[in-house]
Amino acid sequence: MHLEYTVVEGDFVNAGTASSSVKKTLKQLNVAPPVIKRVVVALYEAEVNAIAHAYGGTVSVDIDAQKIRMVVADRGPGIPNIALAMQEGYSTARPEVRDMGFGAGMGLPNMQKNVDKLNVSSEVGVGTTVEMEVNFC
């Protein structure tokens, strides 16, 4: 099963709609609730990052019997130092991102804690791609 969503820059009102939709789909597929929670927490953080730090992007989701693969690709300033960005507490978030309850430097670490595979690639001035996989068993 393949799902695709568009993420719009600064659209905090709709931040999380892709994650909500994926959650509903996984429920319908009878995926175990703890696995669903790991998937949606990671995807939600990635979605919020794309809205908060970039100029929009796409969320692509592929689900098979064994796993879910999620790719969040944004067009934006990119991440100059990915290792630094992975550190809990490091943040470059703008005040409006903090006003939404995010921007404390927990996004990428939260993603890492919840997925089985995480790959972050970024080109400064072009954008960032976050690839995540969660196994169902």
């Binding site: 905090f12 709709n14 931040a15 999380g16 994650s19 959650k23 609730p33 919020v48 939404m100 309850g101």
Partner: peptide, 15 residues
């Protein structure tokens, strides 16, 4: 004390 859409979305994601 946070009262916006992300309060509810986060609750949804965190069950």
């Amino acid at each position: 004390g946070l009262c916006n859409m992300q309060t509810i979305r986060t609750c949804d994601m965190a069950c």
